[in-house]
Amino acid sequence: MCKNNHNKKSQMEIVGLALIVVLVGLVLLFAVQYTFKKPQQTIQKAKEKTTAENFLSAMLKTNTLCQKRTIGELIQDCALARMMDCGNSQDSCLNAKTTIQYLLENTIKKWNKQYRFIIDGAENTNSLHFESSTTACKGEKASATRPFTITAGFDVTIKLDIC
């Protein structure tokens, strides 16, 4: 009779301990979920992607000081013959380079965002490559890619990463 009672008491204690362990586990899970929960980045990503797309579409149509040509026209000339004379011994490539860099620095960089701008598909446009820093956009990023026709059958891809 006495032994039975003792067993019952031990069992009750074990159940109590198990309950405490379960409760502590639940609290820990809850805390971990709140501590390591990544902030919702969907809105941020969508914003950055739209910003990059708007940047490219606005940039290509912007008139420069080089014969009032658009940046798109400067890129076309730069990728082909480099015939345009922009004054101050600047050709289309150099003028496009300084203008695009100015735009990037006065918008995306000013908004404290990292960027990477590349034009792929033409050898002459290799100089039109900009990065806010050497390690910029190696990880997560929002990209906008825009195919751009130089002449019939000759396309380049303009890519802007924002991160």
Partner: peptide, 24 residues
């Protein structure tokens, strides 16, 4: 907090030779 978006601005001073500016 600030939200920005790049935009093209049309300056139609002279309708024949419209100028497009860059802004946000």
């Amino acid at each position: 907090f600030k939200t920005q978006s790049p935009i093209l601005l049309k300056d139609p001073k002279n309708p024949v030779n419209e100028q497009h500016l860059f802004g946000y």
